[in-house]
Design a protein around this nucleic acid. Structure first.
Lengths: 382, 382
DNA sequence: CGGATTAAATTGCATTCCAGAACAAAAGAC
DNA sequence: GTCTTTTGTTCTGGAATGCAATTTAATCCG
């Protein structure tokens, strides 16, 4: 059809339009002009090519039926207008997917990790993405890029991705130089918790929220803070790494801590996923759950009093019933401390924590559609 | 001379230029072009009117003397190019100033509060600013606006300034409608702690820093968080109100708490400023200081692990020797907890906490010179 | 039924702002 | 004295938006 991908020609206000539709749902050109404080003519001009290229779709507005005036046509994002690939790597497995703009996974794959070397992992991940592309028959021009995430904290130079404990032998990884070659498209990276947070921002419980915090419970305790619809990373990308509030030498509400507590009772599990339903009935697990709930209540209170987010979303890879129990406990702990004279932030349950590679797949979307990541020189007119 | 004030015609890149000079010091047009990734021709075109209007001044660059090429001319901000007024109101007094762009107060005034009604206070504040304008003989066209700050927390509708405890009888205050009429120029508002933080950003210890947190110790415990050179307010502007981490029913590191502790020992002081040097030697004050230092250490640890700022700046209206002691104690508490594998944030002493009205005076500067507050329609070129 | 009214969407032209390229100016280097 | 280097300027063109008039399709109402 045409040579250039449908997202490559978006102007700054073009991104704002996509962003507004994503946040506030399908709406007319006139609504967009009012919301974004730009002229209707600008909206018409910018949306024209987007509709032609299949990025947006038009539909009549039923809610305005029976009212005077020219009937409005609602603009919606066509989920299949652009797709992205997501790669999640942990010490045990590689999980990949092709996802559309609605966050639906068109295809997923899970591959065991044979060898933890950087080369072996990236070779396998690249091959997996290529297989998924083949299987779904996606037009490569519609692929906006590939997101890659893996657990671990950052350290030192923020332009480079950190080496992490589980992958000690990896080289010093630089996204552009070391990651991109394996996937044949632009590559973005964040650690597992921050990528999972992006999935909640674009496809999950926090869709369109401007300011919220994320708590990620896996083997460790991770997290992220979203400020004005972008991740706030802080110094060395250490912001919202809540684990730092719980010293490793003491009991903490992490998956590894649960495994340690179980092991001390003689129940040795290798992975979190080995935790079966009947384990949950054990007194030792009940006890851990109660203590972890207290610690999470305290954590949410601290988050509420520091970031004052609109919401706190909690997700992770612990057993679903553990997650549910912890979230219920935090919700019950209102009013989140004394001295509160306004309503506390909403406590939300993550919706996309079952598919960690979806978070990675959200990274290219952020890069391409978010106004704040618009590249190049800047001008503003008034 | 000319009819419009020198700051009113700044384009978006014009603001970026001012901002870059403020952050990185005097520099040549070529430096600015490289730093901001815009063309030298653009810098020439934009700086021309600024120099002509007296907003910028030119000087030869001694550091490039003896080197090849056309000698560079350094551009500096002329502190007197634009001035602002600042008004700080507390239950006991009204403090006002006229300040220039360097944060020098050209004139200050302190007036006792006769009557805490909104009308009386604003009448007196407006008259005071008018007297200062008269005294300094400032050209009204050079006045960018007036900042107004007073202590208290926000609640409810963030478009309106909150009613606070000390001023319970005030009406529901709306900045545009209720504050502007008294001062004859544009008015901006933040509470005392957040305004003080703006003074540190523009004139003090954190000049030009992108991300930092502020701890404000007065009768209460306030604070602010700066993200990308703008205040991050959060839900209901409650972000970084650190006092929320210390329930009022228990000992907390606030000035009011110190007065309460002293009162319990039979030493009844009415105001913080009544605390004399010899009070500091009392065992009860020593004890309070020690406990408050522990609490501040904990607070800074929490800030470091949540916001991960580049720096934490501590200021307030406590006795200077108390402030110094507390800051020293926090600095000595490195490494700010275990599990830290990168350097902790710098602990800085506020430089402008002696003149609270200067924080208010920084608000119009932020509004006028910060790229992120640029009004009107938006476009970006690439 | 048909003109008046209403609001959305479109079109052509004007304006604003920046990039690009050629050029001018001032200094040291050879 | 000419060449080289770097800063700074000028002028033109292009990209993006605003502005104002116009078209379009629906309801309202006599």
């Amino acid at each position: 059809m045409d040579g250039s991908p449908p997202h490559s020609s978006l102007t700054y206000n073009g991104r704002r339009i996509i962003s507004a539709i994503r946040t506030h749902g399908p709406q007319s050109r006139a609504d967009l002009a009012r919301r974004l404080d730009i002229k209707p003519s600008t909206v018409t001009r910018l949306t024209g090519p987007m509709v032609a290229e299949g990025l947006l779709t038009e539909a009549p507005d039923p809610s305005r039926e029976g009212r005077k005036g020219y009937p409005a046509r609602l603009l919606s994002i066509d989920p299949r207008g652009v797709c992205t690939a997501g790669v999640y790597i942990d010490p045990d497995r590689i999980m990949t997917c092709i996802a559309d703009l609605a966050g639906d996974a068109l295809a997923v794959e899970e591959t065991p990790v044979p060898d933890r070397s950087f080369e072996a992992l990236m070779t396998e991940a690249g091959a997996s993405v290529a297989r998924l592309m083949e299987r779904t028959g996606i037009d490569p021009r519609r692929m906006a890029g590939c997101g890659v995430s893996y657990p671990g904290q950052y350290s030192g130079d923020p332009t480079r991705v950190a080496r992490i404990r589980q992958f000690r032998d990896w080289p010093e990884v630089n996204v552009e130089r070391d990651l991109s070659p394996w996937f044949g498209m632009p590559v973005r990276h964040m650690n597992d918790a921050k990528a999972a947070c992006m999935a909640e921002l674009y496809h999950g419980a926090c869709r369109g929220l401007s300011n919220f915090c994320h708590v990620w419970l896996s083997y460790g305790i991770g997290g992220a803070a979203i400020v004005d619809q972008q991740p706030y990373l802080g110094r060395n990308a250490l912001a919202a790494e809540w684990g730092g509030l719980f010293p490793k030498s003491r009991p903490r509400p992490s998956g590894q801590d649960l495994l340690d507590v179980l092991a001390a009772e003689g129940i040795v599990l290798d992975r979190l996923s080995d935790l079966r339903d009947d384990h949950l009935e054990l007194p030792v697990v009940r006890g851990w759950e109660e203590r972890a709930a207290d610690q999470l209540q305290w954590l949410c209170l601290v988050i509420a009093r520091t970031f004052a987010p609109e919401a706190i979303v909690i997700g992770g890879t612990l057993h679903p019933r553990l997650m549910d129990g912890l979230i219920q406990a935090v919700r019950a702990a209102e009013p989140l401390g004394e001295d509160y004279f306004v309503a506390p932030p909403a406590i939300l349950k993550a919706e996309q924590d079952g598919l960690p590679q979806l978070g990675a797949a959200a990274l290219p979307i952020h890069e391409i559609f978010n106004p704040s990541t618009y590249p190049g020189a800047v001008s503003k007119l008034r």
